[in-house]
Structure formats: structure tokens, C-alpha cells
């Protein structure tokens, strides 16, 4: 039972990271109708800048704003210099250009930071475990990540539900023509939304730093999970991003933890292990396929 709770928390943590990635990306898809493969690069930039600042200054508290600032800045530059010219173009052009961006950023980080992955220390006060239930110690850092994620989700909800700017963005995500009608400076709004998305990705990246190895190409594995989240949730829907992220986080984590155990009940152990390994690595994609068959536009389609 304790193991289940621990794995639930791990799944929640993955879900939170995915939510930070997909919230920004789904807005970019929904509002600008642009497919951006380079979103993972912002995650990677956040992680690299965070790890570097933390190593140089020894302060995780400085690393976070540095990572967020760097990701947001690079996001704004990318939007202004490149993506803005692609909004009216076909999806294929957007895919290819942002693929070019990935090549560029991945190689650039190799040139700056080298091939050796960077490792980031868990900041001092968070480096321990506490007993959240009798007999279940859990790393404080992971709890903090979950806390930050929930805080951001709440902040986003307030932004979108309670402020004028947020309502405009939301209106834009579900009906693009609305934005023009509301008399908003579209260029500025697009840059801000894109930059906000990049900032959230940077936050996800810097928080993943102490858990994962910081290396070139780390953005792409999370990017593809993010796509799965968005497909499941529905393009342009924040609610969908929340649901999809939690679903994917939990299914992936629980699948890896418990499928071998479950399969060993019915199969001999070597066959069970190899089958479980295959199934667990494919679980979220199977989930995605199932949801597609049931609801081709995702759980919460924004463009009804």
C-alpha cells in the first residue's frame, strides 16, 4: 500500500512536469495555430542555465529566476525572429523550421557545455526525506516540485479565469477571430503567450535538473510525452492539459512499477518481465490510441 502511494506521488510529479510543458504549448497551438517542435528546447535551456547558475553561485534560488528568464527571453526572440513569419504558412513549413531550431539548439548546447551531462545538486534544505506517512519516507525536493506545480496551476487558473488578459487569451484559443474583434495588439499578445509558454517549459526544465541528467537532446523525450498529453487533452485546452498530464504521468509511472508484478501473477516470471517491460514503455501510447478511437479530438476539445 505504501508503495502504491509512493508511486502515485511519483506519477503526480511527472504529471506536474508534463503539465508545465503542455500548458504553454497547447496555448501556442490553440491561439497561433502553429506547431512548435522546439518547445522542448526551452525546457533544455532552462535546465542548462539553471544548472550552470547553481554551480557557479551555489544557490538554487538564483538558478530558478535565471532559468526562467533565459527560457522566456529565448522564447520571445524565437517568436519574433522566426515563428511570427510562419503563422500563415502550412503546418509542414512550421514543422520543418522548428525542426531546424531543434538541431540548432541541441548542437549549440553541445558547443557551449560539451558532451558531458551536467548534474545538479538538490538544494540543501530540500535534500532530505521526510516521513509523509508512518514508514514512508519521501524526498522533500520531489514534494516541493509537486507544490510548485500545483501553485503554477492555480496561478494559471486565476490568470485565465479572473483577469481580462487571461480571458482574451482563452477566447483566442477557442476562437481565433475573437482576438481581432476584441481589439487586442495581436503581435504583442502572441509574443507574450509564446514567451509565457517558454517560461513554463524553462521552469519544468530547471526543476527536472536535480532529478535527471542535464544533456543535449533532453528536450525531445519530454516534448513527445507533451504531445501525447495534448493529443489526449485536446489542442488549446488548459483543462485538457491538466487532465492529460495527470493521466499520462500516472499511467506511465504506475505501469512501470506494477505491470511486472501483475503479469507475474499470470505468467512465468521471465516472460512476464519482458512483456511487462514492453507494455510499460508503450502504455501511454496505447492509452492515447484508445482515447483517439473514442474521442478523436481529445478529452476536452477547445474548438468545439
Amino acid at each position: 500500500m505504501l508503495l502504491v502511494i509512493e508511486q502515485l506521488l511519483n506519477g503526480l510529479q511527472l504529471g506536474i512536469t508534463l503539465f508545465l510543458m503542455s500548458a504553454g504549448l497547447t496555448l501556442v497551438f490553440g491561439i497561433m495555430q502553429v506547431i512548435n517542435l522546439a518547445h522542448g528546447s526551452f525546457y533544455m535551456i532552462g535546465a542548462y542555465v539553471g544548472a550552470t547558475v547553481a554551480a557557479k553561485t551555489g544557490s538554487f534560488l538564483l538558478a530558478i529566476p535565471a532559468a526562467l528568464g533565459a527560457a522566456a527571453l529565448v522564447g520571445a526572440v524565437v517568436e519574433i525572429v522566426i515563428l511570427r513569419h510562419l503563422y500563415k504558412r502550412e503546418h509542414l513549413d512550421q514543422v520543418l523550421a522548428t525542426f531546424g531550431l531543434i538541431m540548432f539548439f541541441n548542437e549549440l548546447t553541445l558547443m557551449i557545455w560539451g558532451r558531458q551531462p551536467l548534474f545538479m545538486d538538490v538544494p540543501g534544505p530540500l535534500a532530505q526525506s521526510i516521513e509523509i506517512l508512518p514508514g514512508l519516507p519521501y524526498p522533500v525536493y520531489r514534494l516541493a516540485v509537486i507544490g510548485v506545480g500545483l501553485f503554477v496551476a492555480l496561478a494559471l487558473w486565476l490568470l485565465f479565469a479572473k483577469t481580462r488578459a487571461g480571458m482574451k487569451i482563452r477566447a483566442g484559443a477557442s476562437n481565433r477571430d475573437m482576438i481581432g474583434a476584441l481589439g487586442v495588439n495581436i503581435n504583442l499578445l502572441y509574443t507574450l503567450v509564446f514567451s509565457l509558454g517558454a517560461l513554463l517549459a524553462g521552469l519544468a526544465g530547471v526543476m527536472a535538473g536535480p532529478v535527471l541528467a542535464v544533456q543535449s537532446g533532453m528536450g525531445e523525450s519530454i516534448l513527445i510525452l507533451t504531445f501525447v498529453v495534448i493529443v489526449i487533452g485536446g489542442i488549446g485546452s488548459i483543462r485538457g492539459a491538466v487532465a492529460g498530464a495527470l493521466l499520462v504521468g500516472l499511467v506511465d509511472t504506475l505501469g512501470r512499477a506494477f505491470l511486472p508484478v501483475l503479469l507475474r501473477l499470470v505468467l512465468e516470471s521471465s516472460a512476464a518481465d519482458s512483456l511487462a517491460a514492453s507494455l510499460a514503455s508503450m502504455a501511454i501510447y496505447i492509452l492515447m490510441a484508445a482515447i483517439l478511437v473514442w474521442k478523436p479530438r481529445g478529452l476536452f476539445p477547445a474548438h468545439a
Partner: peptide, 23 residues
Amino acid sequence: TTGMHFIMITLAFAQMLYYFFIS
């Protein structure tokens, strides 16, 4: 699906096979 969904889903299925063969 069509449009952006199609792009992301083809990518996801390819990735699924990638992980399948890794396992």
C-alpha cells in the same frame, strides 16, 4: 484525426515502436 493532431500522433506512434524495440 487531421491537421496538428495527425502530426503529433504519427510522431507518438513512431516513438512507441522505438521504445518497444528498446525493451
